[in-house]
């Protein structure tokens, strides 16, 4: 048991916490935050598990660095989509209340309500 392994287990915990939130929470922005928590958990798991011997390992670190930049771009794109969705439909949750789908598609249904 090294400290890296402790962080790997913290990553496992973060993944499951984020998964719970991602499924249960309806507000889209909070859902997005839960999704980011899952991502952080995966990054922690990767680096923590690869460095279980104690010495730093540059290869998974480089992969995680790439992953972080992609994650922030995906988050920014999701924020743009959520805000556009709110702009068009006026709601912050998904339209079908019982359908537990992940992300709103581009809101084509309310195209006639587009401002300007």
């Amino acid at each position: 048991m090294t400290p890296s392994l402790l962080y790997a287990f913290a990553g496992v915990a973060l993944c499951s916490i984020g998964l719970f939130g991602f499924v249960r929470i309806r507000h889209l922005l909070r859902k997005l935050m839960a999704f980011n928590l899952i991502g952080s958990g995966v990054f922690l798991l990767m680096v923590g598990l690869a460095q279980r011997g104690g010495q730093p390992d540059p290869v998974p670190q480089a992969l995680v660095l790439t992953g972080i930049v992609v994650a922030i771009a995906a988050t920014a794109l999701a924020v743009v989509l959520i805000r556009r969705y709110y702009h068009l439909s006026g709601q912050t949750t998904l339209a079908e209340p019982r359908a537990k789908r992940a992300k709103p598609p581009a809101p084509t249904a309310n195209r006639e309500g587009s401002p300007e």
Partner: peptide, 24 residues
């Protein structure tokens, strides 16, 4: 933008559909 002032009701219930409609 999404209005943090309104507390999100319990996530089990689905009554949070935004009452602030866009300008139509």
């Amino acid at each position: 933008h999404l209005g943090y002032g309104r507390a999100d009701p319990c996530e089990g219930q689905d009554s949070d559909d935004g009452q602030a409609g866009p300008s139509r």
